[in-house]
């Protein structure tokens, strides 16, 4: 009996909890990608860099607040800096939309042109972030690190395996859930939210109904900037902030959005967790897990690992490619324009 409990705790500690946190971060990022796709109808290659930009402002704000001696006690100071970062990201998003995308919107350019323009924006933001904060790893988490430590858990329960839960993980899941609920309330209940859905559903008819496209686009950028900054800050608190790592999150975001069904917000969330869980589960070595569950004589020899940890990032791309091949509309029916 205790063996089963030990196995479960082991699984929770190394697979379940990390995947839940990572999945929430991916879901928030994928939501941004999917919203831009459904309203502006292109795959925004600059999304991850907008996330890096927002997070950079959070980091700078955190340092400034720390230098003033302001903190949130057990919670990370970054939460205090977050609102300013969101404002900065919103400002930057709207500035970019004004100066770059609006031109192509009025020309009704093809999605490919938008995508190429977004790679230009990607370069710009990437350069700005590295110019201001540098290319190196930055840690900015402070306050209490753990809600429960592995050692405390062991003494508490008497089990051999420990369970550690980080503050950042709980914050991530909690904030992500609240944010998603708020977003869905907005989309389902408010006039503006419905107008966004209408615009995404049928642009021409939305125009005939008097929905102002520029306003819809503006609100979309604002929401995406909020999502991106929060996702980036949570990711940074959980791990650390490094511009290149953030840039590399672009593909898992796309993977999550497409796996779930691009253009479908529920799909983005489902996709985020599918990608996160597969990344962790496929690269986790199950040797110890099986040692608890199986009798000694059947103990596995190898690591019991499907793919080496080095392929963690590749897993999301592999899933992406498979989904594109087998079911391009994604798990939840997305729109393929």
């Amino acid at each position: 009996m205790t063996d089963i409990l030990n196995a479960l705790v082991l699984f929770s500690n190394f697979v379940l909890i990390p995947s839940l946190a990572y999945g929430s971060q991916l879901a928030l990022g994928a939501l941004g990608v999917t919203l831009i796709y459904s309203i502006l109808r292109f795959a925004n290659f600059a999304h991850a860099d907008m996330m890096a930009f927002g997070t950079m402002v959070t980091v700078l704000g955190t340092w400034w607040l720390q230098s003033l001696g302001i903190s949130l006690g057990p919670l990370p100071t970054a939460l205090l800096a977050l609102p300013f970062a969101i404002l900065a990201a919103i400002g930057m998003s709207l500035l970019i939309d004004r100066s770059v995308y609006r031109f192509y919107r009025t020309k009704r350019s093809s999605p490919a042109i938008f995508v190429i323009a977004s790679t230009g924006v990607m370069f710009l933001l990437n350069g700005i972030v590295r110019f201001i904060i540098g290319p190196n790893d930055q840690r900015f988490a402070d306050g209490e690190r753990f809600i429960i430590r592995a050692r405390e858990f062991k003494t508490l329960t008497g089990l051999d395996e420990g369970l550690a839960i980080k503050v950042s993980q709980v914050l991530t899941v909690g904030i992500a859930v609240m944010l998603v609920i708020a977003l869905f309330m907005f989309l389902q209940k408010t006039r503006m939210g419905k107008a966004m859905r209408a615009y995404s559903d049928n642009e021409d008819l939305a125009l005939l109904s008097g929905i102002n496209p520029e306003r819809v686009v503006m609100i979309t950028w604002i929401i995406t900037a909020i999502l991106a900054t929060i996702a980036g800050t949570l990711y940074g608190l959980d791990k650390s902030f490094k511009p290149f790592t953030y840039f590399q999150l672009l593909l898992p975001f796309f993977a999550a959005a497409i796996v779930g069904g691009i253009g479908n917000p529920v799909g983005a969330i489902v996709g985020g967790f599918v990608i996160a869980f597969s990344e962790v589960m496929i690269t986790y070595a199950y040797k110890k897990f099986f040692m608890y569950l199986l009798p000694q004589s059947m103990a596995p020899e190898g690591m019991m690992q499907l793919l080496s940890t080095d392929y963690k990032f590749a897993v999301s791309f592999i899933i992406l490619v498979i989904v594109l091949l087998v079911k391009p509309t994604g798990l939840m029916k997305g729109k393929v324009v």
Binding site: F42, A43, S110, P111, A112, V115, L251, F254, A255, I258, S308, D310, Y311, F313, A314, F317, I318, L320, V321, L324, L325, P328, V336, V337
Partner: peptide
Amino acid sequence: KVVLGLRSDYLAIATLGIAEITIAIMKN
């Protein structure tokens, strides 16, 4: 053979992903 049927920005994402897989294999 596999990805050319996709619409333009899907093709972009797919090729970007495949390139990353290639590099991952060469690294590991």
